[in-house]
Amino acid sequence: MARYRWTATALCLVAVVAAQTHWLAPPVPSTIGFRNIPDDRFQQLRRQAMQFVEARPRRGFQLVERHQNAGFQIHCRGVPVLWLERRAQFLLLQATLDAEERARDVLQLRAIFQWQLQPLGHLEQVLAGVPEPVLKDRVLRVLAGEVPDGVRCGT
């Protein structure tokens, strides 16, 4: 009986440590692939992201440019939570799995982007190599619990 208690206690400790180290690591993205768009259209999306950040000056959001016309990221207190990346044949729109808790406002911007873009079909996404979060990432996300208040952005 005592052996089972020690085993259960050890498993709980492992889960707690895994959850705490999970928040220290950058969150795993949830990715969607879209058909490529012309430069002027991409710049319009970039301007929308800039307006999103500028409209929330004290909420911890920051726009981080990647290479010219290659993409941009929205950070929440230094942690990327949403990014749009331009690849040769398609666009990747990525949001972290914890975006709903860490930076809920960014989900509205993601929805606006999705509404304006044409998604790749499932087979096209697989052939393009669009990564999907694996079960382990989702389990770690559940074990980690809530995002601490000090690392949240927005309301």
Rank of each mutant, 00 (worst) to 15 (best):
E100D: 15
A88F: 14
L107C: 07
E101V: 08
Q73V: 13
P148T: 08
G33K: 07
E100Y: 13
V53C: 09
L143A: 03
G121S: 13
L127W: 13
W23F: 12
P80L: 11
F52P: 01
T21A: 08
R87M: 15
V134A: 09
Q108H: 06
T21G: 04
V130C: 04
L107F: 02
Q48E: 09
Q125R: 12
Q94W: 00
P80N: 13
A55M: 10
R152P: 06
E146N: 09
W6M: 03
C76M: 12
L120E: 04
A99T: 11
Q44W: 12
F52Y: 04
P27Q: 12
G154I: 08
G150N: 10
E132V: 12
L97N: 02
R58S: 15
Q44D: 14
T21L: 09
Q44E: 15
C76Q: 06
L93V: 11
A15H: 08
Q48T: 01
F52H: 05
R77C: 02
H122P: 15
K136F: 15
R110L: 07
R138Q: 15
Q89H: 14
Q108D: 08
A2K: 01
L45G: 05
P148F: 09
P148Y: 09
L63Y: 05
E101Y: 03
V14L: 13
R66T: 09
Q68E: 13
A99H: 01
W6V: 02
V134P: 00
A99Y: 00
V142W: 05
R35K: 10
F52N: 01
D137L: 02
Q51F: 06
E132G: 07
F42I: 11
E132T: 13
A49Q: 01
L120S: 08
L82F: 07
Q51G: 06
L117Y: 07
T9E: 03
P133M: 06
V134M: 04
R152F: 06
G145L: 06
L127H: 11
R5W: 05
A19E: 00
P148K: 07
A18G: 13
A49R: 00
Q89E: 14
Q89A: 11
Q44M: 11
R66P: 00
V53E: 01
D105G: 05
L93M: 10
R152L: 10
Q51S: 06
G60E: 07
A55N: 09
R35P: 00
Q51R: 11
I32L: 11
A70R: 14
T31Q: 10
A88E: 15
R86C: 10
R46V: 04
E65L: 14
L107V: 05
F72E: 00
A144Q: 01
F34V: 06
Q62G: 04
M50K: 04
A10E: 03
V130P: 03
F42G: 05
R41E: 15
G33R: 04
T155E: 12
V126M: 11
V64K: 14
Q89W: 12
V151Q: 08
L93A: 07
R104G: 09
A49H: 00
W6G: 02
A10Y: 03
P57V: 13
G78H: 13
D39C: 10
L63T: 09
Q114D: 10
R104N: 13
R87Y: 14
Q43I: 15
A10W: 06
V17P: 03
M1T: 00
V14F: 08
F34H: 13
R66N: 07
R41C: 06
E124P: 12
Q114R: 14
K136G: 12
